[in-house]
């Protein structure tokens, strides 16, 4: 039986880790982008960012003061047993958010959209968001937090089957150029592309593709994987680097996630996860032991299943 206090401890720790420590995969990715950058200003910006990650980890302070909109992704194993039901998990995560906001500190970004009232703890109506998913056979609970900025770098469009790959490329260029100017989307970024689903799922898939997959990870479909690499090159060929300066560093990696969609449409969303790609995951095992990591492992084979039922042995 997993106790509420363990869930709260894990949620609190990942809030801290996400805000302070840049994930290794992103750091490696940005260093390899930096090696290819020949422009002086763009190169200076990236080098400064790398120093900033080091300062954050050394001082245990947030790498960016706009600590985004903290939120959670939870994956519950079929055999996980926990105290207090699902609402107990949610209560523990809300409490961890409020405590971490004070202790790290995180910026209390969450305000009411109309009255602008701020509880100073990043908790409020529908905040923090919690997305749930499940995994067969396992006895653990995976809790991932993502702190993503909220203002720039995301767009959605309904494309049609006839728009094809050209339509995808065009929309990617539109989004990266428009939000890349002056660096509003805080590139170089991990870019997520959501393709298909309903309009809301399309947005969700693209965001998860940006925030829940690590640099170097490829979609298991070989043709989608090839498209990921092709679109990454297109992004880096815009001629734009960090802050919209002349350069070649726009995309650290690009991930595509798909969902079956309306036969007449091909909705697309594009999301950029910023220079401070903040994510951290805790796995709480059935015996209460907590393991921390930076790869959310959200898109499991089960998560991407295409069939009615699921038999792990068959894959």
């Amino acid at each position: 039986m997993i106790q509420n206090s363990i869930i709260e401890e894990a949620s609190y720790e990942i809030m801290k880790k996400a805000a302070i420590d840049i994930p290794e995969d992103y750091l490696g990715g940005i260093k390899s982008v930096a090696e290819k950058e020949s422009e002086q200003l763009s190169g200076f910006v990236i080098k400064t960012m790398v120093k900033n990650y080091e300062a954050a980890t050394e001082d245990r302070r947030p790498m960016c003061a706009d600590t985004g909109l903290p939120r959670y992704y939870v994956k519950v194993g079929d055999n996980a047993r926990f105290q207090g039901g699902f609402t107990g998990i949610e209560r523990a995560m809300r409490s961890a958010t409020a405590r971490a906001t004070h202790d790290v500190p995180l910026r209390p970004n969450r305000v009411h959209p109309l009255w602008r009232t701020d509880h100073n703890n990043n908790v409020g109506i529908n905040s923090p968001e919690v997305e749930w998913s499940f995994e067969p056979n396992e006895d653990w609970i995976d809790i991932t937090t993502v702190h993503k900025g909220g203002l720039f770098g995301t767009d959605y469009r309904m494309l049609f089957p006839g728009d094809g790959i050209d339509g995808i490329k065009r929309f990617l260029l539109d989004t990266l150029i428009s939000f890349g100017k002056r660096g509003l989307c805080c590139q170089p970024a991990i870019v997520g592309v959501g393709l298909g689903g309903s309009k809301d799922t399309c947005m969700q898939l693209g965001k998860q593709a940006a925030c829940l997959r690590v640099v170097g990870d490829r979609n298991p479909d070989p043709e989608i994987s090839a498209l990921e690499l092709e679109l990454k090159e297109i992004g880096n060929g815009i001629g734009m680097g960090p802050m919209g300066f002349v350069g070649s560093s726009m995309v650290v990696d690009l991930h595509i996630e798909v969902g079956h969609t309306h036969t007449g449409g091909m909705p697309i969303s594009v999301h950029t996860f910023c220079l401070s790609s903040r994510r951290a995951t805790a796995r709480i095992h059935g015996n209460g032991e907590i393991e921390y990591r930076t790869d959310p492992k959200w898109f499991t084979p089960y998560h991407r299943r295409e069939t009615i039922g699921w038999e792990e042995a068959s894959c």
Partner: peptide, 14 residues
Amino acid sequence: LTTVGYGTGALLGR
């Protein structure tokens, strides 16, 4: 003056 890269929160915090 513009901040650099926009995410240098730790360096500026120092």
